[in-house]
Computed example of a mutant assay.
Amino acid sequence: MDKHGYNCKVCGMSFEKTYGKIGKGFIHIHHIKSLAGIAGKHELNPIKDLVPVCPNCHAMLHAYEPPLSVEELKKILNENKG
C-alpha cells in the first residue's frame, strides 16, 4: 500500500483517523477490473490493478454488474452530499 496509502479512494475515509491505533493499516482492496471479467491467466500489478476503498464504498462499487468505477461512485457521492 506504499503507492496508494490507506485512505478510501472514493470517500477519503481513514480507519486510523476514525478508530485510532486499531484502524492503522486497515483498508479493503478493490480490483479495478473485475476478476470475473478476466479470462485466462492475468499478472496482477498492485499499482495499476488495485485501489484501496472503505467497506461501504466497496459494497457500493459492487452494487451494479459490472461494478461501478471509482470515478463513477465519487460522482454519485458528491452529487448526493448536501
Rank of each mutant, 00 (worst) to 15 (best):
M1C: 04
D2K: 14
D2F: 02
D2E: 15
D2L: 13
D2V: 14
K3D: 11
H4G: 05
H4F: 06
G5Y: 08
G5V: 08
Y6A: 00
Y6P: 08
C8T: 02
C8L: 08
K9H: 10
K9S: 13
V10D: 00
V10G: 01
V10I: 14
G12I: 00
S14D: 13
S14V: 04
F15A: 00
F15E: 01
F15Q: 02
E16D: 08
K17W: 04
T18D: 09
T18W: 11
T18E: 14
Y19E: 07
Y19W: 10
K21D: 14
K21E: 15
K21W: 02
G23L: 01
K24A: 13
K24S: 13
K24M: 06
G25S: 11
F26K: 14
I27R: 10
I27T: 14
H28P: 00
H28V: 04
H28Q: 12
I29H: 02
H30R: 09
H30A: 02
H31S: 09
H31D: 02
I32W: 03
I32D: 04
I32N: 03
K33D: 13
S34Q: 12
L35C: 09
L35F: 01
L35E: 06
L35H: 02
A36M: 03
A36D: 12
G37H: 11
I38G: 06
A39K: 15
A39C: 04
G40H: 01
G40I: 14
G40D: 05
K41C: 05
H42N: 13
H42M: 03
E43H: 12
E43R: 12
L44P: 09
N45W: 10
N45I: 07
P46Q: 02
P46L: 05
K48S: 13
L50R: 02
V51Q: 03
P52W: 04
V53K: 08
V53I: 07
C54T: 13
P55Q: 05
N56D: 04
N56Q: 07
H58G: 08
H58M: 03
A59M: 12
A59V: 13
M60T: 02
M60P: 05
L61E: 01
A63K: 14
A63L: 02
Y64T: 15
E65K: 15
P66K: 05
P67M: 04
P67R: 01
P67K: 02
P67F: 05
L68N: 04
S69D: 06
V70T: 07
V70W: 03
E72K: 11
E72R: 08
L73T: 10
L73Y: 09
K74W: 00
K75T: 13
K75S: 08
K75P: 00
I76Q: 07
L77D: 06
N78V: 08
N78E: 15
E79M: 14
N80W: 07
N80C: 03
K81N: 02
G82R: 15
